[in-house]
Amino acid sequence: MLLNRKAAADLASADMAPAIEGRSLWADARIRFFRNKAAVAGLVVLILVALFAAFGSHLSAWSNEEVDWSVLGQVETMGKPSLFGGPAGDRPHFFGTDELGRDLFARTVQGTQISLMVGLIGALIAVFVGTIYGATAGYYGGRTDSVMMRIVDVLMSVPYMFVLILLLVVFGRSVLMLFVGIGLISWLDMARIARGQTLSIKNKEFVEAAHAIGVRPSTIIRRHIVPNLLGVVIVYATLLVPSMIIYESFISFLGLGVQEPNTSWGALISQGASQMQYGTLWMLGFPLFFFVITLFAFFFVGDGLRDALDPKDR
């Protein structure tokens, strides 16, 4: 409400004094976001992690599948992280090697790619399916609404992690199946949130006006409801990415997710954890570090976006 009034005031002043440039809601939100230091720091970390995932493989002399035979059998001493030349001479292992002599830097890059991808795809599916589903249910209301939301209720009370593992077991453990499984569950919360917002939007005058001049319901949902949901949807999608990453890591930690030679943060953490009694802590440390800072960054960015886009909460 406050925002609308402010925007209206901006418009009015723009009429009187054309020299003052009006600010859109999005520009306002951007200014608020960049004032939040934690959120900006989170954004920077995310960009760095994304760059690491995208270009990290060019930095390392090793591929993620290659075995360094010279460290095998003495990983505790020879496989340590080093910046300049390892035992093999001029090809250093920045993050050391894993217990099989593979370069941990290359494997962390690869794990980061998969974990980020799972998170983003899960969130994208949630945005598309969840928003449209929730907006439809909320706009039509009545019996359509109660049937659609009952379906969501039923799906939500299923212990989906078990069903997801079931799916992975039955249809083979692959990255694709992981995407399908995570996509199946990620949109449920989003549908609920979108529906709740739609319920409050659909009684606004502009929707009534569109309805009165005979715009079809599907067009009203697409043109008038969904754009007004975007703020909430973006905030929630940002907070959804870390939970998708946690799901994936959970499954890969159990060895049921991403399969060798591919890897992900969960799989790397699991491997590192199984080796830590030998003192090779870097195997746990590096993947854990990336996992933790990325989750932190997503939470901070999400909180910042919420403060910026959802004026109600301030």
């Binding site: 699991s270 954890a273 830590m276 933790v292 989750l295 939470f299």
Partner: peptide, 19 residues
């Protein structure tokens, strides 16, 4: 604690309290 799900806590706890 929100970035420390069970599969992260478990190895850390074992590292500190057992090893």
């Amino acid at each position: 604690a929100q970035v420390l799900p069970n599969f992260v806590m478990a190895p850390i706890l074992v590292l500190v309290f057992t090893l």
